[in-house]
Structures are given as structure tokens and as C-alpha cells.
């Protein structure tokens, strides 16, 4: 355990970094991190030169500057896993699970096959898929690979290839770690500071409570984005593009995505605020992906037959 003086010292550094991150203009994420590190170095140098800090304290600040000038990319797969579990539990508060074993097994067979063809096939806890009992049209992915899809969304799918497109889009969000990027930079900074304070395996009461608070806020950042605000158009385009690539790699027809979007267009009712609120209009998504894919959808009979059976009643 670290003494109180050092804890206070690190906390001050963390606060200084948080303050800096709040006032410095971030032209881009990487440049922003660089700026923070630079600010910390300059601050430490000024402090040492003016005699406010000792030389070793100044060096420590510079070191910690590197520690806090970290991004979501520094969140380890293990930590991403714990974030994803709690984001998943929050998503389950919105809609209950749909207790249909056959349909759940079916989407796990499709989804887990697709995940292996993504650019991030291995996550700490793996990819898992669940249907939620709601008429709303929605699909959500928690960091690390927990993917949720509503009955309403599955009703927009007329084929297995369309289901594959929906799941592959969500896998795309996981692959690009879009969820983690919704976490405010200050949270990552704060978590790193607490981590720097506590060196033993078990966190002490104070550090645990700080870290839990940071954790809660990070989860809120992600769920607010997922459920209320939606990702940026750029992230949605990336996920649609990933869906085309991933479905094609496995052997599904990427036209399944267009087919699903057309059906969604028909089913989205004016005034309904679920999927329409957080996603670009189906028409604009179709315009993006159609040039990436070719001829019309052809589905083998055996595949269509099992789709009809597996999702009957959904």
C-alpha cells in the first residue's frame, strides 16, 4: 500500500491531467494524447525550474503524464470484458431476454461463425448472442462481443443471410471497439491514476470506491451512446462495411443487408423512436452498401427452410 503523501501527489497529477484534457482543444485523438503528454512535461519542467517541485517529483510527473496520456486503446481485453458484461446487463434492463432456445441457438451458430471471420475473432470472453423480447427494431453490441438483437429486428429479416448481416454489423462495432470509444477520455485518465496509486492485487476501500465510480460513469458513457444518442454516421458506415466483408468471407450473400434494410424501411413507423433515433435512415445505408455488393440474393433451399423453422414464432 502506498503512503498518503504519494497518493495525494498522484491524485493531484490526475486532476491536473483531467483539467488539461478539459481545456486543450483536441484536433484528433492521437494528437490529443500527444498534447496532454506535452502539457504534463512542460508543467513539470516549469515546476522544477521555479523550485516548486523537486527534481524527482518533476520526473514522476513526467512519467505519470505518460501514464495518463493513454487512450481507450490501453484498455486491456480483460478490462474490456468486464466493461462489456456490465453494459450487457444494462441492455438487459431495457428489454427482457426472449426465452426461445431454438432461436437462440440458431443466432449463436450464425453469429459465432461470423465472428471468426472478423478482424477481431478472439476477444477475452468470446462472442455470444441473445434475442430480446421486444417489438422495437434494435440490435446492440457490448464491448468484447456480447450482442443483443430484438425480435422486432429479426422480423425485418426474411432470410438467414439477412440475420447474418445484422449480426455481422454488430460484430463490426465490436471489432472496431466503437463502444470503448464512447468512454470519455477523462475516465480512462482517472482509472489509470487510480491504478497507479494502488499496487497490490486487492484494491483498498478508497481506491475500489473511486475505480467503481469511474467504472459506473464509463458504463453510462457507453449505454448513453448505444441506447440514446447512437454512434456517429462514420462508425455506422464502418460497421455496415464490416458486415459486407464478414458475411462475404463466411459465404453468406451480403445482399442480405440490403434485403433487411428494405424490410426495415417498410416496418419503421413514423414516431417510433427506437432504431431510427440511433441509426442513419435505411435508404442512405442501402446507398452506401449497394455499390459494394453484386447481383441479387440467392439462398439455397435448405438454408431458407431451416431459417423458417428456427425463427418461426419470433
Amino acid at each position: 500500500m502506498m503512503n498518503a503523501g504519494r497518493r495525494e501527489f498522484l491524485r493531484t497529477i490526475g486532476q491536473a491531467a483531467l483539467f488539461s484534457s478539459g481545456i486543450l482543444p483536441f484536433a484528433g485523438f492521437l494528437s490529443g494524447c500527444k498534447t496532454l503528454e506535452t502539457a504534463s512535461r512542460i508543467g513539470a519542467q516549469v515546476g522544477a525550474a521555479t523550485g516548486v517541485l523537486t527534481e524527482s517529483q518533476a520526473q514522476s510527473i513526467q512519467k505519470s503524464g505518460r501514464a495518463v496520456a493513454r487512450s481507450f486503446e490501453e484498455i486491456t481485453p480483460e478490462q474490456e470484458y468486464y466493461i462489456g458484461r456490465t453494459v450487457g446487463a444494462r441492455i438487459l434492463q431495457k428489454y427482457q431476454p426472449y426465452p426461445n432456445r431454438r432461436a437462440t441457438t440458431y443466432i449463436n451458430l450464425i453469429g459465432q461463425s461470423l465472428s471468426r471471420a472478423s478482424d477481431l475473432p478472439e476477444t477475452f470472453g468470446g462472442y455470444h448472442f441473445l434475442i430480446q423480447d421486444s417489438d422495437e427494431i434494435n440490435a446492440l453490441a457490448a464491448p468484447g462481443g456480447l450482442v443483443f438483437v430484438t425480435r422486432g429486428m429479426l422480423r425485418c429479416c426474411r432470410s438467414e443471410d439477412a440475420v447474418a448481416a445484422v449480426l455481422a454489423h454488430e460484430i463490426g462495432h465490436v471489432q472496431y471497439r466503437h463502444g470503448l470509444q464512447a468512454i470519455k477520455k477523462s475516465r480512462v485518465t482517472s482509472a489509470m491514476t487510480t491504478l497507479g496509486i494502488e499496487g497490490t492485487k486487492t484494491f483498498g476501500g478508497q481506491e475500489l470506491s473511486e475505480l467503481t465510480e469511474t467504472f459506473e460513469k464509463s458504463i453510462a458513457d457507453i449505454t448513453n451512446t448505444l441506447i440514446n444518442n447512437g454512434y456517429s454516421r462514420a462508425f455506422e458506415r464502418q460497421a455496415d462495411s464490416a458486415a459486407v466483408t464478414i458475411t462475404r468471407r463466411v459465404g453468406y450473400d451480403p445482399n442480405g443487408l440490403v434485403e433487411m434494410l428494405k424490410e426495415m424501411q417498410r416496418q419503421l413507423k413514423p414516431g417510433r423512436i427506437d432504431f431510427a433515433k440511433t441509426h442513419p435512415a435505411p435508404q442512405s445505408r442501402i446507398a452506401l452498401v449497394e455499390p459494394m455488393i453484386g447481383a441479387s440474393l440467392w439462398i439455397p433451399e435448405a438454408r431458407q427452410h431451416r431459417f423458417n423453422i428456427a425463427l418461426a414464432g419470433v
Binding site: I75, T76, E78, Q79, Y82, I83, R85, T86, G88, A89, R90, L92, Q93, P97, G125, G126, H128, F129, L130, L146, A191, L195, T202, F203, L208, S209, L211, T212, F215, E216, S218, I219
Partner: peptide, 26 residues
Amino acid sequence: GFNDQVENAFKEKNPKMDFKMIDQME
């Protein structure tokens, strides 16, 4: 960092959240 200890502390503050379903999903 964010580990099982933090998850447990979070669960204590949010007892209504369904982590059993998450375990089943995994």
C-alpha cells in the same frame, strides 16, 4: 483496473441488474 472486484462492488450498488443472464450468455 476494471476487474471482478470492481464488478462485484458495482453489483452491490445495482442489485437489480441481471448478471446471471450475462453468465448464461457466456
